[in-house]
Design a protein around this nucleic acid. Structure first.
Length: 656
RNA sequence: GCCAGCGUAGCUUCAAUCGGCAGAGCACCGCAUUCGUAAUGCGGGGGUUGUGGGUUCGACUCCCACCGCUGGCUCCA
C-alpha cells in the first residue's frame, strides 16, 4: 500500500504499483495529458527528486508527489535536456562516426558536445533543425532503461561510444546500475529525467557552434559543441530571440565606438583600453563619486607605482604562481627585474610596514584606483569587460581580528550604496566559504570558522537579498563576498568583491604586525575590497545597462544648446557660457541646419537635455527645454533651467 | 592558447551574377538656404578590398601563411 500526499493537502492510496502518470489519471484526464514529470519527496528524510512521469513509484510506504506540467519552472529545463537528445539524435542521423559526450541544460537553452570528423558549421544548422523537427513529429517516447554495469559497458561498446565508456569508468566508478534513455534508434547514457515524448518541445533554434574540451579539461581532446534554445511555445522563443537582439543592440563595444567612449587599437595592444574624452568624463565622475564615499568612510588615498621588483611578488606569492597570466618581467640587470604589477596589495602592504603600527592605528584603510596588468589569454579578451590592463577601485583594510566584522559590514554597505546609486538595485550576494575537508587553505581552522560565522552574521543582519553561501568556493587565503548584479535586461554581472586575507599578513609572506594594548606583537587581518571591481569592466557594464543613455550626472555631454537659426547664435553662446560657468558639461550646435535636424542629432547622441533658443527665448531671457525622454517640456528662465539641471545632477537621478 | 566563423571607404548599414571596370547610404568637406521640437538642397573628396605570398590572361572572389575581430572552451590572484 502506497500513500501519496498531494500538494493540495489531499492524499491518495494505491494498493498496486503505480507511476506518477497513473496518479495524474486518477485526478483527471486533463492533468494526465499535461503531466511531464514529477517531483517526489521522501517524508522520512525530506529528500526531493525529479522523476519521469512513467517511473514506477515504490509499492509501499508514503511519499509526497507534485505533478509537473509546462507551467512549473522545472519543466523547461527538463524539456531542454530532452531537446538536446533530439539534437544529438539528428546529428547522429546526419553524420558518420559521431561520439556523444555531454548534453546538459544551460541558462535559456542546452548544448550537446560531439566528437566527429565533419567540422560542424552554422551552415549545417538548417539541416540539423529540419531533422530535429522530423524527430519531434515522429514523436517516439523517451524510454528509461537501467543496465547493470557490465551490460552498460557492452552496450556502449556496441554503439561505439568511447567517451561514454570513459565516463562510466572514470566518473561513474561507483555505480552498479547505469541509466540510459532510448528514443527509437537513439540510445544515450543519461541519468534523466526526461519529458515523456518530444511532443511538448514547442519551439527550438540552434544558436552557435563552439569548441569545448572533453570534461572541461584543456589537456583532453577538443569536441564540437552545438548550443540551442528551446521553449514550450513559439512566442517564448521569439521573446527570447528579441532579448538577445536587445543585448546586441546594447553591446558596449558597438556603443563605445558610436558614442566615442573608448578605443582599443591593435598597435597599442589587445586588451589595452584607451579612454576617449567622453568615456574619460564618465570615468572621472565615477572616480569623484567613489573618492567622496571613501573619504566619508575613513579611507585614506595613496598612490603607488604600476611596477615592482620581482622579489615583492615572490614574497606575496603571485610570482611565479601566476606567471602564465602575467606580462614577463622587465630585466634591467640580472639581479634587478621588475614586474608590471598584477595586484596593488603588495605596494599597500609596504606602506603599512613603513613604520611600526599600534592597535590605535587600526583599522588602517588605504585606497587607490590602481592600474594593474594581467596577461589574459588572447581568446579571453573582449571589449572593456575582459582586458589586459585595468583599474581596480581597490582598497586594503588592515585591522584586528575583533574589527573584522565591523570592517566587513562597512565594505558591504558601501558596495550596496554604490550599486544602488547606479540603479543596480537587483543583485545577489555570494558568500564563499572554505571546504572544511580540503587542506588547500592557509590560516587556522578556528579563525576561518570565526570569520565565516561573523561574515554570515553581518550579511543576515543587513538583510542582504538573495544571499547564497557556497562552500568550497573561497579563495585559498580567505572567505569572500561577491556581488552579482542583474542589469535592466536581466543579465548578471559579477562586480564588487570583499575578501578576507589571512595569507599576505602571515609569517611566510609579509609577516605583518601591530603592537597591541598588551604591548605584544599581533598579526592584523587584511581585507581586499572593490565595489566596482574594475573601472573598465564596470563602465562597460554601465554602457550596456543604460544602453549608452547615461543619467545626467554621468553623461559626457549633459546639455546641448540648439539655436533655431544662426541669427540667435550670440544669445545661444550667452546661455552656453552660463551653463559652463555653473560646471555643466554643455556644447552648442551653431550649424546652419534646421532645428529638426539638430534635435535629431542630439537625440541620437543620447544628449540628456537640449536647450532650444530662438527669437522668443531671446526676447524673454528664457530657454525651451527638451528632455531626451519626455520631449518638449516648455520654456523657462535660464536660471530655472540651470537650477533644475543642477538638482538632477546633485541627486544623481536615474530616469529611464 | 584551443575550436569554429568573419575581415570591402570613418561606420558591427552594406552591394559587386560563374574569377572579368570596386559601388550605394550615413558621416565628412564646400556652396546655397536662416528655418520653431527626430533628417533642407546641390556639389565634392575618400579604397593597394586586414597583411604577405601563390594559382590565373585577369583575384574582393580560389589556395597558403600571418594579423585582427566575433562566438565558445580553458583561465580569472
Amino acid at each position: 500500500m502506497l500513500k501519496v500526499n498531494l500538494p493540495d493537502g489531499n492524499s491518495l492510496e494505491f494498493s498496486s504499483r503505480v507511476r506518477p502518470i497513473d496518479v495524474a489519471s486518477e485526478i483527471g484526464a486533463g492533468l494526465a495529458k499535461a503531466t511531464l514529470l514529477a517531483e517526489i519527496t521522501n517524508p522520512s528524510d525530506g529528500e526531493t527528486k525529479l522523476v519521469d512521469a512513467d517511473r514506477p513509484l515504490p509499492e509501499d510506504g508514503e511519499i509526497s508527489l507534485r505533478l509537473i506540467t509546462k507551467r512549473d519552472e522545472e519543466a523547461l529545463a527538463v524539456m531542454r535536456h530532452s531537446c538536446a537528445h533530439v539534437m544529438a539524435r539528428a546529428v547522429m542521423r546526419l553524420f558518420d562516426g559521431v561520439e556523444l559526450a555531454f548534453g546538459p541544460t544551460v541558462d535559456n537553452g542546452f548544448y550537446y558536445d560531439f566528437h566527429l570528423k565533419h567540422s560542424i558549421s552554422e551552415a549545417d544548422f538548417p539541416k540539423i533543425e529540419a531533422e530535429m523537427a522530423k524527430i519531434i513529429k515522429e514523436n517516439e517516447p523517451f524510454e528509461q532503461i537501467d543496465q547493470p554495469r557490465e551490460k552498460a559497458l557492452e552496450l556502449c561498446k556496441e554503439l561505439e561510444q568511447k567517451l561514454k565508456i570513459e565516463h562510466i569508468e572514470e566518473g561513474l566508478g561507483d555505480q552498479s546500475t547505469l541509466s540510459f534513455y532510448r528514443q527509437g534508434e537513439f540510445i544515450d547514457l543519461c541519468g534523466g529525467p526526461h519529458i515523456p515524448s518530444p511532443a511538448s518541445i514547442g519551439a527550438f533554434k540552434l544558436l552557435s557552434v563552439a569548441g569545448a574540451y572533453w570534461k572541461g579539461d584543456a589537456s583532453r581532446p577538443q569536441l564540437q559543441r552545438i548550443y540551442g534554445t528551446a521553449w514550450f511555445n513559439k512566442k517564448d522563443l521569439e521573446d527570447y530571440l528579441t532579448k538577445v537582439e536587445e543585448a546586441k543592440r546594447r553591446d558596449h563595444r558597438v556603443l563605445g565606438k558610436q558614442l566615442d567612449l573608448f578605443l582599443i587599437d591593435p598597435d597599442v595592444g589587445s586588451g589595452l583600453v584607451m579612454w576617449l574624452p567622453k568615456g574619460a568624463t564618465i570615468r572621472r565622475e565615477l572616480e569623484t563619486f567613489i573618492y567622496a564615499e571613501l573619504l566619508k568612510r575613513g579611507y585614506q588615498p595613496v598612490y603607488t607605482p604600476t611596477i615592482g621588483r620581482v622579489g615583492l611578488y615572490e614574497t606575496s606569492g603571485h610570482f611565479p604562481y601566476y606567471s602564465d597570466s602575467q606580462f614577463p618581467p622587465i630585466e634591467v640587470d640580472k639581479d634587478e627585474r621588475y614586474l608590471l604589477r598584477p595586484m596593488n596589495c603588495p605596494h599597500h602592504i609596504k606602506i603599512y610596514q613603513s613604520k611600526p603600527r599600534s592597535y590605535r592605528d587600526l583599522p588602517l584603510r588605504l585606497a587607490e584606483l590602481g592600474l594593474v596588468h594581467r596577461f589574459e589569454q588572447s581568446g579571453e579578451l573582449s571589449g572593456m569587460t575582459r582586458v589586459r590592463g585595468f583599474t581596480q577601485d581597490d582598497a586594503h583594510i588592515f585591522c584586528t581580528e575583533e574589527q573584522v566584522a565591523d570592517e566587513f559590514r562597512g565594505c558591504i554597505e558601501m558596495t550596496q550604496y554604490v550599486l544602488q546609486t547606479l540603479g543596480l538595485s537587483d543583485y545577489r550576494v555570494r558568500l564563499s566559504f572554505r571546504d572544511p575537508h580540503s587542506d588547500k587553505y592557509v590560516g587556522k581552522a578556528e579563525d576561518w570558522n570565526k570569520a565565516e560565522a561573523a561574515l554570515e552574521q553581518v550579511c543576515r543582519d543587513l538583510g542582504l537579498p538573495n544571499l547564497e553561501i557556497e562552500v568550497g568556493e573561497a579563495a585559498f587565503y580567505g572567505p569572500k563576498a561577491d556581488f552579482v548584479a542583474t542589469d535592466c535586461i536581466g543579465r548578471e554581472w559579477q562586480l564588487g568583491t570583499v575578501q578576507l586575507d589571512y595569507n599576505l599578513p602571515s609569517e611566510n609572506r609579509f609577516a605583518l604586525e601591530y603592537v597591541g594594548a598588551d604591548n605584544a606583537p599581533h598579526r592584523p587581518v587584511m581585507i581586499h575590497r572593490a565595489p566596482f571591481g574594475s573601472l573598465e569592466r564596470f563602465t562597460g557594464m554601465l554602457i550596456e545597462h543604460f544602453a549608452g543613455a547615461f543619467p545626467l550626472w554621468l553623461a559626457p555631454e549633459q546639455v546641448r544648446v540648439l539655436v533655431v537659426s544662426q541669427k540667435f547664435e550670440e544669445y545661444g553662446r550667452e546661455v552656453l557660457n552660463r551653463l559652463l560657468q555653473d560646471g555643466i558639461r554643455a556644447t552648442g550646435d551653431w550649424r546652419p541646419e534646421k532645428i529638426g535636424a539638430k534635435i535629431r542629432d542630439a537625440q541620437l547622441e543620447l544628449t540628456p537635455y537640449m536647450l532650444i533658443v530662438g527669437g522668443r527665448e531671446m526676447e524673454q531671457g528664457t530657454v525651451s527645454v527638451r528632455d531626451r525622454i519626455e520631449g518638449d517640456v516648455g520654456a523657462m528662465p535660464v536660471d530655472d533651467a540651470i537650477a533644475k539641471l543642477n538638482d538632477e545632477i546633485k541627486q544623481k537621478t536615474i530616469r529611464q
